[in-house]
């Protein structure tokens, strides 16, 4: 088929699979950063300090509406200008982690907003501390409606990792491009990259949906 070479395919497959490990690692670290920073960004918008709320809101808006690839370049190149050297991995994780933190903060915000006012009032009436209110009452209820969005962004961050290749993170896309420029063959590496992405993201999406249903059931939120 269209000059597809199987020997070449088998030859490069181990390298690509190894690079897939890096892709998954990058997605995992980036997501972990995003989950935590995202929560901080969401909670920062619920403090009584209006200036802080507005500043965080605007920052989230800014990060969400500008291209991730540009942010990756920005983080990677601006450091050295001021004498701070970041490795491609560190710069990449900061950029992608912050980008997805801004998405996740919106997901959390939606989840928190979906908790009825009466729940807060009940906590106040019971004189629960703010920490206890959040962690024991509000967040458990805000979680299930947030899960679908969180799952989508987990798959999303995985699919955005190829952008890290532009600053030299040796993930899948970077490896495929390297193979292409060594061998002058792009058909097999780029097609395989596409197939690897499909093979991971399609089952993941299904798995996430199943997990979401399981959590809802576990929390007794479905009939």
């Amino acid at each position: 088929m269209f000059d597809w070479r199987w020997d070449f395919t088998l030859n490069i497959l181990p390298r690509l699979i190894e690079a897939t490990g890096n892709t998954l690692l990058a997605a995992g670290i980036g997501y972990a950063i995003a989950v935590v920073i995202g929560l901080a960004l969401a909670l920062a918008q619920r403090t009584p300090f209006r200036a802080l709320t507005l500043a965080v809101r605007e920052a989230v808006e800014f990060i969400r509406s500008t291209p991730l690839i540009l942010q990756i370049f920005f983080v990677f190149y601006v450091g050295p200008q001021f004498g701070i050297r970041l490795s491609p991995w560190v710069a990449g994780m900061i950029a992608i982690g912050l980008h997805y933190a801004s998405y996740l903060s919106e997901v959390y915000r939606g989840g928190l907003d979906s908790v009825p006012r009466g729940q807060w009032e009940a906590c106040a009436a019971l004189n629960l501390s703010p920490a206890r209110t959040y962690f024991r009452v509000i967040i458990p209820q805000a979680l299930p409606p947030s899960l679908a969005g969180m799952g989508n962004y987990l798959v999303g961050i995985f699919k955005d990792t190829p952008m890290l290749s532009v600053i030299g993170v040796a993930e899948l896309m970077h490896t495929a491009t390297a193979i292409g420029s060594e061998s002058y063959r792009y058909l097999e590496p780029y097609t395989l990259v596409g197939l690897i992405f499909l093979a991971i993201s399609l089952p993941s999406a299904a798995l996430i949906r199943a997990f979401e249903a399981w959590v809802r059931k576990k929390l007794g939120m479905t009939r």
């Binding site: 190829p162 290749s165 780029y190 097609t191 596409g194 992405f197 499909l198 993201s201």
Partner: peptide, 14 residues
């Protein structure tokens, strides 16, 4: 299910 970057490279190079 795949990345925009992968699709772009595929369309342009493959």
């Amino acid at each position: 299910g795949t990345s925009l970057l992968v699709q772009l490279y595929w369309i342009f190079f493959v």
